[in-house]
């Protein structure tokens, strides 16, 4: 990474940010300065050797509570904690827990807080992480609550944009696919409202970006436009943020069948794009990005997933009160 890319972020860092023992439930809980501070911390962590990182959280325990399936996020958090020298306890299937016996989320959290220094949780219900934070005296990091929020994904998305584009201001960014149920695009759009970007929302009519977000973005003075065809925006954008059409979020399977193959990005489709274009995706992908695109210089989704490590390490370190 070009270290100069982050020079513009140094100004707000004179403020002392207080993250120790704080929860991170929603990207909306963070100010612009706090977001920039965390991205700068991630950049510092990324520059550390593995050996240096490994000594930072010796003896600390992270509880990893995954009430619904996850591969990437769960492994990324575990890898982040273990890379800092800490330990991870938890579960990735609520069927093996007392929740199956009828234990409430509140009680589960009150129990787990006795065993861990920080709690990372994913839950299928919207708002579950906020409730957990009210129950817990230990900090909670939301690793996804239903269709609502996934703030560390947003931070790593912002980190990826900053790394590849050198800035967060003034970019043309398209979000494509499931904009209705996709929590990553909701959170990313709201986070980008701190920066002067042009947002292009590309979705079929039944998966449009919800009005609540469009209204809020416009209220904040953002330039946003809606499109049905990806080709209408491909040549204009610096970042193409693709998403999976999420079958599990559709109440009616027939509706999923109508839209499941609506967008497919191919190498041929990338002939007239900006040279600095980067294609991102929160993963997993199904078929919305051809594997042939992986070989182009525009593909960035796997590096994007890798950026989750320094970003989550920076966040955990801040929450645990470790100053870099």
């Amino acid at each position: 990474m070009n270290n100069n890319l982050f020079i513009s972020l140094s100004v707000p860092l004179i403020f002392n940010m207080h993250f120790k023992d704080r929860d991170l439930i929603s990207i909306n809980d963070l100010s612009k300065e706090e977001i920039l501070f965390l991205l700068d911390q991630a950049k510092k962590v990324e520059a550390f050797s593995h050996a240096k990182r490994f000594g930072l959280l010796q003896g600390k325990i992270m509880a990893s509570l995954f009430f619904e399936p996850s591969t990437r996020t769960r492994l990324s958090f575990s890898s982040s904690m273990e890379g800092l020298g800490g330990r991870v306890i938890g579960f990735d299937d609520e069927k093996t827990t007392s929740v199956k016996k009828g234990e409430s989320l509140f009680d589960t959290i009150k129990m787990v807080e006795q065993y861990a220094d920080v709690i990372v949780m994913r839950h299928p219900r919207d708002g579950a992480a906020r409730l957990a934070a009210e129950a817990s005296s230990k900090p909670i990091i939301n690793a996804g609550d239903g269709a609502n929020q996934h703030p560390t994904q947003t931070l790593l998305d912002l980190f990826s944009i900053l790394k590849t584009q050198g800035k967060l201001e003034g970019l043309n960014i398209a979000m494509v696919g499931d904009l209705k149920y996709g929590r990553t695009v909701h959170s990313l759009a709201m986070a980008l409202s701190h920066f002067d970007c042009n947002l292009f929302f590309v979705a079929p009519p039944m998966l449009r970006m919800p009005k609540q977000y469009l209204d809020e973005l416009r209220r904040k003075g953002m330039t946003v436009s809606e499109h049905e065809k990806m080709e209408d925006v491909l040549g204009k954008v610096d970042v193409l943020y693709m998403t999976r059409i999420q079958q599990e979020r559709f109440p009616d399977p027939a509706d999923y069948e109508k839209v499941k193959h609506v967008y497919r990005l191919t190498r041929k489709g990338l002939t007239n794009v900006k040279p600095n274009l980067k294609i991102m995706h929160p993963l997993p992908r199904i078929n919305e990005i051809s594997t042939l695109v992986d070989e182009t210089p525009y593909a960035y989704y796997f590096q994007q997933a890798g950026n989750g490590i320094p970003v989550r390490q920076a966040l955990i370190l801040q929450i645990m009160g470790v100053q870099l």
Binding site: S104, L105, H123, R125, D126, G127, A128, D145, N148, Q149
Partner: peptide
């Protein structure tokens, strides 16, 4: 989450003139 777990509802009123708008504290 307020639909289960016996959680009491909690709303922030984000628009106080008619028609009102309220944001759920939990699901946002």
């Amino acid at each position: 989450i307020t639909q289960s777990n016996g959680v009491k509802s909690y709303f922030h009123i984000v628009k106080k003139t008619s028609p009102l708008q309220a944001r759920c504290h939990y699901c946002e």
